[in-house]
Nucleic acid binder design. Sequence first.
DNA 1: GTCAGTGCAAATAATTTGCAGTCTT
DNA 2: AAGACTGCAAATTATTTGCACTGAC
Lengths: 177, 177
Amino acid sequence: VTINRKKEPIYSKAEIDRRCVAFEDTCRSRGVRVTPQRLAVYRALAEDPGHPTAEALYARLRERMPALSQATVYRTLEFLESENLIRRVSATEAIGRFDANLEPHQHLVCRVCGDLSDVSLPELARPALPVISGFTVEELDIRLVGRCRNCSRSKSLKRARSAGRRTKTKSIINPKS
Amino acid sequence: VTINRKKEPIYSKAEIDRRCVAFEDTCRSRGVRVTPQRLAVYRALAEDPGHPTAEALYARLRERMPALSQATVYRTLEFLESENLIRRVSATEAIGRFDANLEPHQHLVCRVCGDLSDVSLPELARPALPVISGFTVEELDIRLVGRCRNCSRSKSLKRARSAGRRTKTKSIINPKS
DNA sequence: GTCAGTGCAAATAATTTGCAGTCTT
DNA sequence: AAGACTGCAAATTATTTGCACTGAC
């Protein structure tokens, strides 16, 4: 078991440079513009192993780019996510979806429509909690992220923000369509 | 593999009744009052396998309890969570925490301070994606939820809302202190 | 009767959007 | 030059909080 306690960046300087170049290539190959803002946001995230929030990145970036706006940070992160160049991870402060089912089970999360349903993987009915020094594991939260039946065809990644009952199908990620 | 496609409630009517009684007992044993609102929120969640949001529960509940307020729903859900009577699950629309590390790895989530760090469980370095009919699994997201070293002592569950750099240590869950 | 719990409305937090101007290609 | 991106500020959405009141014990 290897824990990265936020001491070092996820990638070495050289690796980060390489990734920034790859990022530029990706942008160009997809006909998207390479801007200083996009590069800066991408690099700042690659350098920060602490899973920062958009707000935290903005605070750090504005020191070097005072004119940078929050909106750009949000837009850039969304763009990077849609290009699979970064991932969004969930902490405990996730927007509230609740579950009264306390039996060990897992969740199926559709990344297109946001649908959330239960699954039971038999091999995980009674999961062994990994032992990690310096951290008391109380719960193993497993999510299978992918596409539900209805969304298996759709190509775009229009993440539903609030997956309540709302059927606001406006694309957030792909405003170009 | 068993999938619950939201057709039936998680628990049978009888089971829900039993749980509501257990809920009452828990409240009394902890010196917390049993109110119609708390019972209604708990029951509504137990009856809804769709992992509803606070907003969705509120919308459903106010039909039968027109005077119910949103604030009560939020407060009750928080209370139920702190008593381990329900769980909070995360969908894709989680409040943004980002990660540029695309290598397969897992996350350690401290439920007290919200701290998020990387772990690599060797047996999951190259995880086999479960095959589930009617759902295309693209990613296995595993979170080890518990307490980090610093928080292993603290008893209260003061979930950090925005775990940025903010050190707002105001207790949300335990306003009585 | 007491005070924990509620309702209401206002406050805060996080994110999104409209629009006019700017810079990449 | 064209229009994709940006900055700004206002709008939206989700959640929290202060305060006076009410009802569970």
